[in-house]
Amino acid sequence: MRNQGFNWHDPILWAQGLGVSVGVFAASMILGTVIGIFIALCRVYKVPVVAPVLLVISEFLKNSPVLVQLFLVFFGVPVLLQVNITPAEAAIFTLTGNTAAFIAVIAISAIDAIDRGQLEAARSFGHSERSILRKIIAPQALVVAMPALIGLAVNQLQVTSLISAIGVIDLTKVGQILNQRTWQPFIVWTIIGVTYFILSRLLAAAGGRLETRLRRHMDWAGL
């Protein structure tokens, strides 16, 4: 069989892989941010029992390889709980947990960076804790956290490439498929690498623009 050359079907495969990578990245980033903020709030408000447990879990997630976490969820959990998990579910679940652990750290340090005096002032003006959180803490913490969040997002995008190891047909897996068929490793991996590179750069640029926008209203505009 001579199907070693690249053909018209390959760009479609590439686009599908790109879609899967971006999809898993977006899903895990959004879910991870929500859960990460929840973890951070539990720890900032020192919720008993929950806060220390979450701390242990997130330390565990931060200090172990994502690849092994993926293996644990995809190969280990189905055997333990007698359930079926698709590769994509395992991938999103694992990456969400991982992202949440890092988001929690960023959120806690961003909240810490806010001047305590402001909170006391808000309390003495009779703001509820909820409105303090929404109107005073959240907008400022977001600005402080932006650079770290952009860094994390770029990093998590790279991490999505690992889901190819549990059989998700993402960009890296597409690279492996094309590499095995065509035996043109330099062309295949250069294209895949450049795709990730451009994605990362676009992500960082978008984050940078968002950051300047968020900062704009904080600049001193004069009275």
């Binding site: 770029v154 995008l157 790279q158 490439s161 492996q176 690498g193 990730y196 990362s200 750069r201």
Partner: peptide, 21 residues
């Protein structure tokens, strides 16, 4: 910039499959 923005797994495949070529 180059090596921080490309996933390590892609880099390693590049070398692992590319070098014998």
């Amino acid at each position: 910039g180059l090596f921080r923005n490309i996933p390590f797994i892609v880099q390693v495949f590049f070398f692992y499959f590319g070098l014998p070529e």
